[in-house]
């Protein structure tokens, strides 16, 4: 329509506008387009570079403590392990804001982001990872239970479309 600017009309024009709005709604009601990702069955593949759960590799760590120093949320802390002279980092996901400073600052590439972001915890204490637990591979629980990864594609008609990867 040419009239982009709203002008209040009389009773008949406003009736026509209401009818047009309801017709638009009905058109959407009858179409079969959907944009939702049905999450536990499908999982958006976020690819490399997504700032999800942080992976720590013990064999690369030089115990410099830079990650604990730079952490703006005080989520990263250095822990003393029994029988070790050096200290190693542990992370508290109650505090972590996933800013990625620790990953950027690490001189030995011992920390890296993974695309895993859909974990949940039953107890708050489970969210604190001391160095023994920190050195693990992150797996998305949805993927573990057989979710199919999908990739997001921009679509002229629907907006977003999800194609199997």
């Amino acid at each position: 329509m040419a009239e982009d600017v709203y002008k209040p009309g009389n009773l008949l024009t406003s009736l026509k506008r209401h009818a047009a709005a309801i017709a638009t709604g009905l058109r959407y009601l009858l179409s079969t387009k959907r944009m939702t990702v049905r999450y536990p069955e499908f999982l958006i593949d976020l690819g490399e570079g997504y700032r999800g759960m942080i992976r720590w590799r013990r064999e690369r760590c030089i115990s410099c403590g830079l990650c604990a120093q730079i952490c703006p949320a005080a989520a990263m802390k250095m822990y003393k392990l029994p029988g070790e002279k050096k200290m190693f980092p542990g992370i508290n996901y109650q505090r972590c804001i996933f800013c990625g400073f620790c990953v950027d600052v690490c001189p030995a590439f011992a920390l890296e982001h993974t695309p895993v972001h859909d974990l949940s915890y039953e107890e708050l204490d489970e969210m604190i990872y001391i160095p023994e637990r920190f050195d693990t591979e992150w797996v998305s629980p949805a993927l573990k239970e057989g979710a199919r990864p999908v990739k997001v594609v921009f679509d002229e008609e629907v907006g977003l479309r999800h194609e199997p990867k």
Binding site: M35, T36, V158
Partner: peptide, 13 residues
């Protein structure tokens, strides 16, 4: 369900 359909969602499923 109808609101979800109009908004390109699924609604209760």
């Amino acid at each position: 369900k109808m609101t979800a359909k109009v908004q390109l969602r699924y609604g209760p499923l």
